[in-house]
Computed example of a mutant assay.
Amino acid sequence: MIATGIGSLPGESGREAFKVVLGEVPDLPHAPELPARGAIADLTGRTLAVVTGLDADLQPAGWRLTGSSGSSGLDHRRARSLLAQDLDMVEELTQGYGGAFKMQVAGPWTLAATVERPRGDRILADHGARRELAQALAEGVREHVRDIRRRLPAVTRLIVQVDEPGLAAVLAGRVPTASGFGRHRSVDAPEASTALEWVLSAVAEEGAEPWVHSCAPGTPLGLLRGAGAKGLAVDLGLLGAADHETLAEALEAGETVALGVVPSLEPAQPITDTVVVERVLRWLDMVGLDPDDVGDRLVVTPTCGLAGATWAWARQALALARSSAASVGGGVAERRD
Rank of each mutant, 00 (worst) to 15 (best):
G5T: 06
L9R: 04
S13P: 12
F18Q: 13
L22Y: 09
P26I: 08
H30P: 00
H30K: 00
H30W: 08
P32W: 00
L34T: 08
P35V: 01
R37A: 10
G38K: 09
G38C: 12
G38M: 08
T44Y: 03
T52L: 14
T52R: 15
D55Y: 12
D55A: 13
D55L: 06
W63H: 04
R64M: 04
T66R: 07
G70E: 07
R80S: 14
R80Y: 10
S81Q: 10
M89W: 12
M89E: 15
Q95L: 15
Y97K: 09
G99I: 06
A100K: 08
Q104M: 13
W109A: 12
V115G: 02
E116G: 07
R122G: 05
D126S: 01
A129P: 00
L133D: 07
Q135T: 05
A138V: 02
R142P: 03
R149W: 10
R150D: 13
R151A: 11
T156I: 04
R157C: 03
V160M: 15
V160S: 02
Q161K: 14
V162A: 09
L167E: 02
A169E: 02
L171V: 04
G173C: 08
P176Q: 04
T177V: 07
T177S: 02
S179H: 06
G182W: 00
G182C: 02
E191C: 01
A192S: 05
A192C: 02
S193F: 00
E197Y: 06
W198S: 07
A202F: 04
V203Y: 11
A204H: 11
E206G: 07
A208M: 07
P210C: 13
W211H: 11
V212D: 12
C215L: 01
P217E: 11
P220M: 12
L224T: 06
L232E: 09
A233G: 03
A233W: 02
V234N: 11
A241E: 15
A242G: 14
A242E: 15
A242S: 15
A242P: 12
D243K: 10
A248G: 09
E249L: 06
A253I: 01
L259G: 00
S264V: 09
P267W: 14
P270M: 10
T272E: 11
T272P: 09
V275K: 13
V276P: 08
L284V: 08
V294I: 05
D296R: 10
L298M: 05
L298E: 02
L298H: 01
V300I: 14
T303H: 03
G305E: 01
W313Q: 05
A314K: 05
A317M: 05
A319C: 02
A321H: 11
S323E: 11
V328G: 03
G329S: 10
V332C: 05
V332K: 14
V332P: 00
A333M: 04
D337L: 15
